[in-house]
Computed example of a mutant assay.
Amino acid sequence: MAGLPSLPRVAVLGELDSELPFDSPYIVKPRFGGSSIGIEIVEDRETAEVIVRTSVHMREGAVIEPYIAESSDLSIAIKTWPSVALSAIERPTRGGSSSGLFDYSEKYLSGRGLAGAERELPASLSADTEAEVRRAAEVVAKVLPVRSMHRLDFIERSGEVWVNEINTIPGAMAGYLWVDPHVSYEEIINGMIDEADSWQPKGFSTAGSDGTLLRSSGSIAGKLG
């Protein structure tokens, strides 16, 4: 999308009945949901097929991607008011999780929710890696119709980064990322209110959707003329 680095993925609706176009290991995710719930790392297609068929989290479908071993997560917050601004970049600490993922317990069971999870903030990154994360975040802010504040997540390995997903409110306030530049929660909330007050709702017309315009044109020649 828009020249952004991202991993290939396959959407599965029902049975996994074809070969996957990338090598194992795989990461299997529920089509809907979040917070790392139901995500599995598997070594082969057969195991992925069983999980897609039997997991309660995959009843509405699944998404399969290549699993990037020895990688880490990076996140950055984006706010759009009064102009686009980017927070510091964090590297969440996966700690002792045996799943190989930044999982639910590490995210939310530390006592203060995601804001209390272990992290390196700001993350220690090479100048090139930080520049690529910020470039991608600026592109996302331009091409996606999002407002207010959101968190953009990346996967990183040896300086190479891939855009993973965007988390909008209420999925992620990401206020804890605003340490450099520093933005207080009060400023964040006030900015969100100001942006909402200034927002001009877009109007859409359904005129002609009942076929009136097509019928009145008479023929193809009339439509083109």
Rank of each mutant, 00 (worst) to 15 (best):
F102V: 12
K107G: 03
L144A: 03
E138W: 03
G96M: 07
D128P: 01
G100H: 10
L101A: 07
G100V: 05
E138Y: 13
Y104E: 07
E130K: 10
V143H: 05
L125S: 07
S105R: 06
A136F: 11
V140K: 02
L125Q: 01
L109K: 01
S124G: 09
Y108K: 02
L144Y: 15
T129F: 03
S99W: 11
A137P: 05
A123R: 00
G96T: 09
R134E: 13
R119V: 15
A117V: 08
A127F: 12
L109P: 03
L101R: 14
L109S: 00
A136M: 13
L121V: 15
D103V: 09
V139I: 15
S99D: 10
G100Y: 13
D103M: 08
E120G: 07
E138G: 11
E118H: 11
S97A: 09
E118A: 13
R135N: 05
S126R: 04
R134L: 03
V146I: 10
A136T: 15
V140P: 02
V140M: 03
K107W: 06
A123L: 06
A137G: 02
A141R: 00
P145C: 03
L114W: 03
G96V: 12
E132A: 11
V139N: 01
V146R: 04
K142W: 11
A137L: 13
E132Y: 12
E120L: 04
V146W: 10
S97K: 01
Y104R: 01
A115C: 06
G100D: 14
G116V: 15
K142D: 12
D128A: 15
R119A: 03
T129D: 00
G116I: 04
S98G: 08
D128G: 01
L125A: 00
V133K: 02
T129I: 04
V139K: 04
G96Q: 10
L101T: 14
V140W: 06
